[in-house]
């Protein structure tokens, strides 16, 4: 017991290791008000602990570069990537992603990369913030552009 007691006493004079992120306490107002206050700059938030260099966060997808080769779909272990034949691009479900970055390695155009963003929470598993790439909006946008281009011709 004695050696542990020394360790415990040493701990008492040290600063806590935990980073109070985003703030130590929530002010006694509702959450919406907190968001408003933050936007106004009245509450200062603690920055998160820096992530290391090779950190694999939310996947980033450069849709313009993509050639639609579907190699990423072949190696994705969690089937998070789906091909959209209308636009020959892919759609990525972030909520299924396991952050292995295997698709980054196989991509011949290097249009997939892992960003450092780690705050991915959403109320819905397939909510709008958690689907990137050739979403329905993107498909509509492309089709619209196509139509206008056709009309011009």
């Amino acid at each position: 017991m004695f050696p542990v007691a020394i360790e415990v006493l040493k701990q008492m004079i040290k600063r806590p290791f935990t980073n109070p992120y985003p703030a130590k306490y929530k002010p006694k107002v509702t959450l919406t008000e907190v968001v408003e206050l933050v936007q106004k700059g009245k509450i200062k938030l603690n920055p998160p602990v820096e992530v290391p260099e090779g950190f694999r966060g939310r996947i980033a997808y450069n849709i313009e570069e993509c050639i639609g080769c579907q190699l990423c779909i072949k190696v994705c272990p969690s089937r998070a990537i789906e091909f959209v034949p209308e636009v020959k691009k892919v759609k990525i479900y972030i909520s299924r992603c396991t952050f292995c970055s295997q698709c980054n390695d196989i991509c011949p155009k290097k249009c997939l990369s892992m960003s450092k963003e780690f705050e991915l929470a959403d109320y819905e598993k397939y909510g709008k913030s958690l689907i990137i790439g050739a979403t329905e909006d993107y498909v509509k946008k492309v089709e619209k552009e196509k139509k206008t281009a056709d009309k011009k011709e």
């Binding site: 542990v4 360790e7 415990v8 290791f17 290391p52 260099e53 090779g54 950190f55 694999r56 396991t98 952050f99 292995c100 970055s101 295997q102 892992m114």
Partner: peptide, 29 residues
């Protein structure tokens, strides 16, 4: 339990190294 907290505190060091060289604390890929 004192020992539990103390051992897990020293465990953080190696997890930080793993995170730095592989990108993740676990599931290093």
């Amino acid at each position: 339990d004192t020992l539990l907290h103390w051992t897990w505190k020293i465990r953080e060091n190696v997890l930080d190294v793993l995170e730095a060289i592989t990108g993740n604390r676990i599931n290093y890929a």
